[in-house]
């Protein structure tokens, strides 16, 4: 992995007390450890139960942001998609969607980082800690994918 000067934030959201809902949080924990071992200081990390309005400020000074979330969607194992402020405003709850945070960032701070959402497929959501076996496999694949993808982060801009 090259020594990029880009400021790159990986931001997970989910509840690790609800099994696979914590996939994003676990991703961040493991990937952060790996980047530290590699001496990649431009990779920044955060984790929370859900996204919210203050995250618009947090992403405003980054070059690339990758939100990481567990997914119930019909995907194989993981999926990286682009997020932009044109995503549907879905602030229908006390939490916010990635697209909403991006839109807030654009409107409030006039900043437009490149934003992605890494979806990692989950299967079980009970009141327990720990991932299901299949989710664990998907997590490992997703981490390897991101390591490869961020070899040259400038290409992602």
């Amino acid at each position: 992995m090259n020594k990029s000067k880009l400021s790159i934030l990986f931001y997970a959201y989910g509840n690790p007390g609800r099994m696979d809902d914590g996939l994003g949080n676990e991703f961040v924990e493991r990937f952060e450890l790996w980047t530290k071992q590699q001496g990649l200081r431009n990779f920044l990390f955060d984790s929370n139960y859900q996204l919210n309005i203050e995250d618009a400020e947090e992403i405003s000074d980054k070059d690339i942001v990758v939100f990481v979330d567990a997914s119930e969607e019909d995907i194989e194992d993981y999926l990286l998609t682009e997020v932009d402020g044109s995503s549907k405003v879905s602030f229908t709850t006390h939490a916010a969607s990635p697209g909403y945070v991006v839109q807030l960032c654009e409107k409030l701070y006039k900043k437009k980082p490149k934003v992605y959402l890494l979806h990692i497929k989950g299967y079980e959501w009970e009141f327990k800690e720990g991932l299901s076996q299949k989710a664990e496999e998907n997590l490992v694949k997703a981490i390897e994918f991101i390591k490869e993808k961020f070899q040259y982060p400038e290409k992602l801009l």
Binding site: N52, I53, E54, A56, E57, V89, F91, Q103, L104, K107, L108
Partner: peptide, 25 residues
């Protein structure tokens, strides 16, 4: 009638909301 509408009409207020959340967090 959503927060984007508030931002367009009352931007300072929306920024205050964000920063008050952040302080509490």
């Amino acid at each position: 009638r959503n927060v984007i509408g508030v931002i367009l009409n009352f931007k300072d207020l929306a920024v205050q909301g964000v920063m008050m959340r952040k302080f509490g967090q």
